[in-house]
Structures are given as structure tokens and as C-alpha cells.
Design a protein around this nucleic acid. Sequence first.
DNA 1: TTGCCAAAAATGTATAGACATAATAAACGG
DNA 2: CCGTTTATTATGTCTATACATTTTTGGCAA
Lengths: 242, 242
Amino acid sequence: MTTRRPPDNTLHQRILKDLEGKIVSGAWPAGHRLPFEVDLARSYGCSRMTVNKVMTELVRAGLIERRKRSGSFVLEPKVASAVLEIPDIQQEVETRGLCYAFTLDRRTRRIARAADQRHLDLADAGPVLALTCTHFASGRPFCIEDRLINLATVPDADSADFTVIPPGQWLLQQVPWTAAEHRIQAVNAAGPVADQLRLDPGAACLVMERRTWGGDGPVTHVRLTYPGDRHSLVARFEPSAP
Amino acid sequence: MTTRRPPDNTLHQRILKDLEGKIVSGAWPAGHRLPFEVDLARSYGCSRMTVNKVMTELVRAGLIERRKRSGSFVLEPKVASAVLEIPDIQQEVETRGLCYAFTLDRRTRRIARAADQRHLDLADAGPVLALTCTHFASGRPFCIEDRLINLATVPDADSADFTVIPPGQWLLQQVPWTAAEHRIQAVNAAGPVADQLRLDPGAACLVMERRTWGGDGPVTHVRLTYPGDRHSLVARFEPSAP
DNA sequence: TTGCCAAAAATGTATAGACATAATAAACGG
DNA sequence: CCGTTTATTATGTCTATACATTTTTGGCAA
């Protein structure tokens, strides 16, 4: 069985791959000026609009820079960013062929303390929900979740039953689109954390903190602690546009 | 002084922001069918092509899905990926107002061992260059670099002087565009590593491994070890297209 | 009913032309 | 020689139109 891949015999794709190839292969090094739109259009026997759309994509992909009156130039290669995959915990566990489960260990409703305000990026005190969960993979602790939910923007969270659905999944369903900021660190497991994850005290753990904003302001802050030796994050970079 | 921001009063941008707003605000929830191209074109008083380009961008951004004959639909929100910032080490040190320096601790030319082949994603044995560097921030160890360079694709590396320029920067200048795969882990510093970074043995360290491919095959593999308590990685996600 | 075929509907791709915008280069006047 | 104006040039945006492609729908016949 071959993977179903779109043929992409379109002129657009042909030109895109062609120019992209010239750039990533080094045939056109950084600083090189590409042919003008009109010339490319003529040489490919197509209209300028078609070439223009391709060039616009190359700009998006960060391969070229365009200057009016001067032309289009190949940029310096940059590995300055990569796409980090952040899978859902349940999905991640099940992908490994393990059985997923979770427990809600603590649930507290309170007025945001100074630390809560800092974590949630809140300007002033308001009601928040503090949750602690443990996620399991086939009975083994997989990850600890410490979460704060801003009840000012997600009031329904107060009446949600987080023993049935993990708060992360509930929020994903509830709140539409969000912006997020992640911070990844390595820490030594303190005593209680080590116990909870069944690790030796001081074992290295991967900690991912995520802050999330919706249209109405800060939504949630979560701190996920994974055993460092069993877990890794993956990020990829491709010069070509996907 | 205000930040120089393009006005983007273009119709294209106006339509894009408009539709984007409807989606991220939740006014059009997941599964909602947007108006047809022709209707949007009429309501904005523009041609279908203009609307089409906007819709194409929304697809790229992962906000909508388009099905022929059926229409365009808002997708489920996904925080499944984020953009990870991977700054150059020197730049990172200097951004913190510290003084950058590095030492080349070891340099070995050899035929790729089994482990080297695995690290570099090589099919067969060939000449490789193994380097170990220490990067310093104002005299304090900042990061350990263990690198393999595939001399089959980068023969010039054999004659480069890596006591003058860090191998990472040299490669960035030398090899054009590359694809890369990153793996991030937390580990406990083993004895020698702890000594080198001047940490207590067993201290948590953030390890980033990067494999890099160019047009001619595997280029390099690098393992960067940072003190976990002093370093963190940042990744961001924005629903809107940049 | 079932199976097949044709029409309709929506998006996908491409064109040729128009005018706007911005940056450079050339011409010009002091 | 210098600063200003003007022309040129390449890209940016948009239009109106055309035809291709894909999927659904509905009709027709076995």
C-alpha cells in the first residue's frame, strides 16, 4: 500500500518546488537575486500572478525577501525555530500502546493569590480553580498536572466534573481558539513529586509550563512534570513550506 | 517611538482579520460552515479570487478545512504544535548581557562507529569529525556541546579551525538550508558532566539533541547539555497567521 | 429497491490586465 | 557640488473571467 500523496502536478507546485530546490541546494546562495517576476513568468510560460503567488509562499516560508524596485533575494539560512509537537496526554499514552487513566488528586476554589496571578498573567485578584491530577500509563505514573483555571473567563469550569474528563481535554472542548506560551525546563524531583511519580528523590524531570489566553483574557496555566528518563519532546524544522 | 507596523489596510488583511476574529472568538464554533466564496465576495464587494486567497491562508493556518461541493468548515482548536525558539548560543549569552567565550576541548577524526552512524542517521561507515566544546557565559560554564560532523557531506570541516569559530556558527555559514530534528530531554548530570558544568553530581540538566540534513544527506548531530535550573526553552503558539 | 449516469454546486487553478506603492536612478536647478 | 524633483522599475493588490475537479444530488432504468 502506497501512501496517498496528492500528485501536485500543478504549475504552481512545479514552480514552487523548482525555486525551492535552487535555494535549499545552494545553487542560489544567500544574497542571490532571483529572476524578476515577469522573467520567471515568461520562462515558465505562465502569467505573473502565478509566479507572484509562489514568491509570496517563499516569503512566508522564510526563504526569500522581496524589495520593491530591487528584486527578490535569498535569505541567510535560519534554524532559529522549529515546530514543537505537543500531543494530548491521553493520546500520547495510547499511541505507545498503553492503557490511559488519570486521577483528580486535589481541587480548590480560591481567590487568586499573588503566585496565582503571576502564573495566570492576571492583573488583579479573582476566582480561580486549582487542580492537581496524576496521569497514568498502564498503571504507572506518567505525568503530574498542576493546573490553574481562571474562572473569570471560564466560569463553567466551576461546575465541571474533572474526575470524569481531564481538565485539559475539557478546556479544549470548551474554550475556542487560544494562544499559548510554553516553557520547558529540567528540574530535580523534590521528595513528594518523586514519590508521586515513583522515582528516586532528585531524579531529573522534564517540566513543561503552559500559559493559555483566549479572546477574553487568560484562561489557564498548567505545569506538567514528566519523568525525564522516560520522556522526550520532539521538534522539527523543514525549510520547505508544508 | 511607536513600533513600525505595516498598516495592512488592504482588503485582503481586512477580510482575513475579520474571518479569523469570528473563528477565534468562538462566534463561529468548530464545525460551523462559513459562507461560500461567492457570497463572501459579494458581501465584501470584491472578487472571488480575493476571498479565495484569504481562505487559502486560513487553511494554511489550520483554522478551517475546505471540502469541494460542501463548503468551508471551522476546525477543532488544536494546541498540538508550537513554535520553539532555538537561538544561537553566543547570541543567547550576549542577550543576557554576559560575555561569551568557548573552548574546543577535543577534536577527533575517525571512521563512523555504530553509535556515530546511529546519531548521524548514516547508512554506512564514513569519515566523521567528533568535537567537544564548552560554552561560557562570563566565565561560567553555560553549555556543553558534543558534535559529530559528517565529512562526506561537509569535507571542508576537516580543515576548519574550530578554536576560532564555534562549529555551530561555522556550519550555519557553510551549509545552505537544512532540515532539522530536535529531541529534548531531562537527565541527571553524570560525574564528568557535572564537573565540567560545575554542578553537583546528579543535578538535572536539559539536553537538546539536534540532527541536521542538507541536500546531500546527513550533516551533523549535536548534543547540547544545559544546567537545568538556569536554562529553559520557550515555545509559542498563535492561532492567527503571522 | 439497487445501480448507474448526468447535472449542479462548490472549490481549485490559472489568465491577462489594471492601478497602487515604494525605492531607486536620472535629470534638473540652485 | 548638492539637494530636489521626476521618471522608471519591480513588486503588491485586485478584478473579471475561464475552465478543471470533485462531490453531492437527483433522476432514470434494470
